[in-house]
């Protein structure tokens, strides 16, 4: 019996954000926007969902008098991401 894929992560943009954040220490919103080719509005909504799930920390501060948002994956987020990848591998192994 397979586990269901985590619905928070099984969304293209949220998964892209998590995959990006898993390989860095922290990244600014503008960097994530550029790498995912998402619109600012859509990305804001998805980042908020990841934050509410406790998968990422979002820090809003001022940098050179401009608002600046930085995102960082949490321990809970790393665990969820690892579980998601393990479940994906189970699905793929069965299909082989």
């Amino acid at each position: 019996m397979f586990k269901d894929l985590d619905p928070i992560l099984h969304s293209q943009l949220r998964l892209a954000v998590m995959s990006l954040l898993i390989s860095v220490k922290e990244a600014e919103f503008t960097f994530i926007k550029e790498k995912t080719n998402a619109t600012a509005g859509n990305l804001s909504v998805q980042v908020q969902k990841l934050k509410e799930a406790g998968y990422i920390d979002v820090v809003k501060e001022f940098k050179d008098n401009y608002p600046n948002t930085t995102c960082k994956i949490t321990k809970k987020g790393i665990k969820a991401f690892e579980e998601y990848v393990n479940t994906l591998q189970q699905y793929l192994n069965v299909k082989k």
Binding site: L5, H10, S19, L20, K35, T36, L88
Partner: peptide, 17 residues
């Protein structure tokens, strides 16, 4: 989107970084 597409997305984002 399929598990294959998910894995492909993860791989491409990690590669990008």
């Amino acid at each position: 989107f399929s598990p294959q597409q998910s894995l492909q997305l993860i791989r491409s984002m990690i590669e990008t970084t």
